[in-house]
Amino acid sequence: MHEWALAEAVIATVERFRRENGGRPVLSVDLRFGELQNVDLEAFRAGLASGLGGLPYGPEIFRFLSEPAAFRCRACGRLWPLAEAPGIGEEEREAIHFLPESAHAYLRCPSCGSPDFELAAGRGVSIQSVELEGD
C-alpha cells in the first residue's frame, strides 16, 4: 500500500522534530487527512505500527483528523466541494488517490468549465501538531 510510504514520511518527520527538540518524549501527533487523496486510514495505521517499531511511542498517540476537499476556480471564483465534482469515475478516483494533482486532468469548474482551479483545502496528509513532553 502506498499509505505505508506516507506513514513512513510522517514518522521520519516526527522523529526529526523530536531530535531537534532535545529528544523529548512525543506525547501526541495530530495528522490531517485531506479528502481528495482518500487515504485508507487502516492501511495508514498499519504503516505507522510497522514503522514505529523500536521507537518509544506507538500508533495510539496519533490522532486522525479529516479535512474536506474544496476547489476554487481561478476564472470565476466558484468554490466547490469534491462531492460536486461531476464525471469522476473509479479510475479517476484511483489516479487522484495516487497523485492528487491528477485532479487537474479530470475536474473542471462546475460553473464555468475552466480547468484553472486551485485546491483550496483537503489535499493529502499533513502534520497539524506534535506535542512533546514539557510543551
Partner: peptide, 8 residues
C-alpha cells in the same frame, strides 16, 4: 502545518 514528504 508540517508537510512530511520532504523528509523521506
Amino acid at each position: 502545518m508540517i508537510d512530511p514528504r520532504p523528509e523521506v
